[in-house]
Amino acid sequence: MMSLFGCYHLKVFIKAMFALGLVLFNIVVNSCLAFEVKLIEEVANTSRLGQVIKKTDLLKQPSYQSESAGYVAAKEKINIQKRKSAWYLISTENIAQKGQVTGWVSMLNVRFIATAKREGELGVGSLFSSAINDSLPTVSSGVRGFDEKDLKNAKADLKQLLLLNAYVVSTGAAARFAQQGKLQANKIKVKED
C-alpha cells in the first residue's frame, strides 16, 4: 500500500516537474525571440563576409564627394558592418591590423562570400533564427522542386485559383497596411510616369 502511495506521489512529482520545465522553456524561448526581434530591426544584410570585385575606393563618408580613406584591392575580403543607401561600411583584415578606421565602399562593387542557402519552413520560426546568425535551421522541408521537368508534367489546377482569389486584399486594405508601416509613395521620375 505504501509503495503504491509512494508511486502515486512520484508520478505527481514528475508531472509537476515536467510542467514546470515546459513553463520555464517557454519563458526562455519567448525571451530569446523578443531579443531577436529587437536585434533584426536594426540590420540590413549586415555582419556578412564579402569581397570587392575590383579595386575600390574606400571613403570616409557614404558619398562620392567624400574624402578618401584609401582603397580596397580587388578580391580583398571584407567584413560588412552596415549599409546606408547604396554604400557598405566595411573593414578588412589589413585595415584592422594597421589600426586604421573602417570606410565606405559602393555596394555594387561588393559580392557576398558564398553561403549555404536557408532552408526550412516559413511560419515556424526557422527563418527567424537563420536571419540572425545565418545558421541553417534544423527543420527539414524536403525537396519540393520547381524545375523544367516539373513544369512539363504539370496539369492546370483550377481549384488552386479559387484559393488564390480568396487571399486577395482590397486597395483600401493595402493603403492601410502601407500607412501602418509608415510607407509613403514617393514622386520619383520613372518611365511609367
Binding site: 516559413l122 504539370a154 496539369k155 492546370a156 489546377d157 488552386q160 488564390l164 487571399y167
Partner: peptide, 17 residues
C-alpha cells in the same frame, strides 16, 4: 497561373499569403 499552381500548390498559411 493554373499551370504554375499545378506544379506546386499555394503555401498553406493564410497570414503569409
Amino acid at each position: 497561373s493554373a499551370v504554375l499552381l499545378g506544379v506546386r500548390p499555394l503555401y498553406e498559411n493564410k497570414d503569409i499569403n
